[in-house]
Design a protein around this nucleic acid. Structure first.
Lengths: 241, 241
DNA sequence: GCAATTTGCGAACACCGATCGCAAAGTAGA
DNA sequence: TCTACTTTGCGATCGGTGTTCGCAAATTGC
């Protein structure tokens, strides 16, 4: 048997019609992994835990996946399949903003993808569909393709940053409850503020009645401004009705 | 001895004037860790390797640091100390752009901080200096403090994304050379393109003579546009001279 | 000198990703 | 049905990881 691990998982056939047949499938394993990560985060994805959640041994997983990173590639691509991609509406900016909105709900559903966005995951078929969709949306746009791809990367990243901010406080850190951790952090901040060498920080710590509320509009505005800035807002007037 | 790990490392005194004195210091350990990470990446930071680079045993490090995460907090804050913060120039946008420029060179010097920007590092004294600086720069700006802090987070994140794009191809993935990995990825892309269901992707793969070149101006423009968008470019006319 | 207190660190533990080799379970052909 | 042949399932195991424990060593105040 040849062990073709040098090519990406997307090019390796999942099974061949010979020998003992698979008892599981990549999709099944991926779904189980996503379920674990949704509940307990990316660190909870260990080969042993995933295996036992599938009622098998850790070694068996390596028949489906060359290593843990490849498993995560599968997970990311599975999440990319959750987008609902319509055709271009004619208003590229609106389409990009709508895409960002979908990205937000998907990232909130799968918080573990947030840190993966900054990184170099192997691009799978569903991720390629996303790229194709963005290129279609920007079909009439005069920018070079490289700029469009970079804009797409930036769009994903900005949404990730936004969601990360939204979800701050829901993740846990090193066994400690996030509440404990935040309380300890706050104690330190007060300590620093009391020293008087950070006056503006100190003033920022008095609770502000007009606190910033993260509404859905906030992301829309943010992404619209950024994409306008990146892809030349002047070329397309974006006020509808 | 009480083991005060519930409060952040910044509040625990580094040493007490009693008993056997420290043979090392947090700064020394942090510097060694940064040196390793600069050369071999964040994964190379193992307690054993760091210890042996300091000619000691792994267990000794836990007299200075509660766990690996705390060590990384120290590293991040050490990098934050590398900024040179001048006073506000009066042009907040220019100051923010200049800050982003510094962030870029610092992140290029320490590529391992890029994935840490998206995350929840414990904010140390030098990071607090950065926040204080940004708040000072935005002192006259009418936006609420929360919005300013979010803009700061977004600024850091965008620079991280930018540097990540710049450095793509310098990191390695799972033993394989990045060249091998990229070649394999490219093979898959060609395979998909040949199937004809991603026409725009296929066209994007024919090498473009007018490829996008990442110049220094690119980041300046990008950050300027984004910060203008976030903090209301209309409120402050930013054309000088 | 003599507690008291703190640090240094070898040894060990639990857990991780990954590999190896063989038994089990199928297919194709006689 | 029997016999290669091929592929999967997976127990056992390896090297490496973060972290803890307990004791010896080093320093202080008395």
């Amino acid at each position: 048997m040849t062990r073709r691990v040098n090519e990406p998982i997307w090019m390796r056939p999942e099974s061949v019609p010979a020998g003992r047949p698979n008892e599981r499938s990549r999709a099944e394993i991926t779904a189980a992994a996503v379920a674990i990560a949704d509940r307990d985060g990316l660190d909870a994805i260990t080969m042993r835990r995933l295996a036992s959640s599938l009622a098998t041994g850790p070694a068996s997983l390596y028949r489906y996946v060359a290593n843990r990173d490849e498993l995560i590639d599968l997970m990311v691509d599975a999440v990319a399949a959750e987008y609902e991609l319509g055709g271009p509406s004619g208003d590229w900016l609106a389409d990009l903003v709508a895409f960002a909105g979908q990205a937000r709900t998907i990232m909130r559903r799968h918080p573990w993808v947030v840190p993966l966005v900054i990184g170099q995951p192997s691009i799978g078929p569903h991720s390629l569909d996303l790229i194709e969709h963005i290129l279609a949306v920007l079909g009439d746009h005069p920018a070079p393709t490289g700029a469009k791809l970079q804009a797409f990367a930036m769009l994903n990243g900005v949404v990730a940053l936004f969601v990360q901010n939204e979800l701050a406080g829901e993740r846990r850190r090193n066994g400690q409850t996030i509440a404990q951790w935040q309380a300890a952090q706050a104690a330190y901040l007060h300590h620093i503020a009391a020293q008087g060498r950070h006056p503006r920080l100190a003033r920022a710590m008095t609770p502000d009645p007009a606190a910033v509320a993260a509404t859905d509009d906030a992301l829309d505005l943010l992404t619209a401004r950024i994409m306008e800035g990146l892809l030349g807002g002047a070329a397309a007037a974006t006020d509808r009705d």
